[in-house]
């Protein structure tokens, strides 16, 4: 069973098509990249996977659960890092994580909070207000937030955007490391450099899957085609 299965998914905003017949799988424990220029449909796809919108047609399964028919089970297995920040800047890291733990029904989350903060290297910032964290630390805190309920799949939408090189490296390294713990990741990006040669890659362009390549395949041709086509 795949961590995520997207089958023939289409979506329209009024008459404007945003996604057309998109299909791909995210293998269990993998770090899969979703590559596409701005406006390719990555964020729309994430909104469909997280059921912020319902797709016009097609089927999406998270860990075997249909997001439309079994949203509760599917969303319980999903962690999301959105492109825009979701931390409450006036609250401490601990208060933020407690809130998100509560949203998943976790009554006593303190041990898990310590665990996820250790995973992202922020144990010493537990009582710091989110406002005082650097951009890179905020991103790592967002990853901790998304992991709080032990999801099997993590969706990250341009999670390294706006970070300096060192922070970007840190964030990528944390997310790649999750595979060893059985957490799959779908990493949406428009930056080719964030993809390693052995990463499975889905290239999304103008709402369609331009290429879906398994790990270890050269993608330069497709990437050039995508960027030249604009």
């Amino acid at each position: 069973m795949s961590a995520l299965r997207v089958e023939n998914v289409s979506h329209r905003f009024g008459r404007i098509p945003a996604l057309e017949d998109v299909s791909f799988d995210v293998p269990k424990g993998s770090f899969t990249a979703l590559l596409g220029v701005n406006g390719a449909g990555k964020t729309t796809l994430f909104s469909l996977i997280t059921r912020l919108y319902d797709s016009t047609s097609g089927r999406i399964e998270v860990a075997g659960f249909d997001i439309r028919r079994q949203p509760r089970q599917a969303l319980a297995r999903l962690g999301v890092v959105f492109q825009s920040r979701a931390l409450d800047l006036d609250l401490t890291l601990r208060q933020n994580l407690r809130y998100h733990a509560a949203l998943h029904g976790l009554a006593r989350p303190d041990a898990r909070i310590d665990q996820v903060l250790a995973m992202v290297g922020l144990s010493d910032r537990l009582h710091a207000k989110a406002r005082t964290l650097s951009g890179g630390q905020q991103r790592r805190a967002e990853i901790a937030r998304a992991l709080i309920h032990e999801p099997t799949l993590l969706l990250l939408d341009e999670a390294a955007a706006g970070l300096d090189a060192a922070s970007r490296r840190d964030v990528l390294s944390i997310v790649r490391g999750l595979g060893a713990q059985g957490v799959s990741a779908l990493w949406a990006t428009h930056v080719f450099d964030e993809i390693a040669p052995d990463d499975p890659v889905v290239i999304l362009h103008k709402g369609r899957v331009l290429a879906h390549r398994p790990a270890g395949t050269d993608l330069t041709t497709e990437f050039l085609e995508m960027t030249c086509a604009g």
Partner: peptide
């Protein structure tokens, strides 16, 4: 921030 609320199961 609203999205994080609405993606709760």
């Amino acid at each position: 921030a609203m999205r994080t609320l609405l993606v709760s199961p």
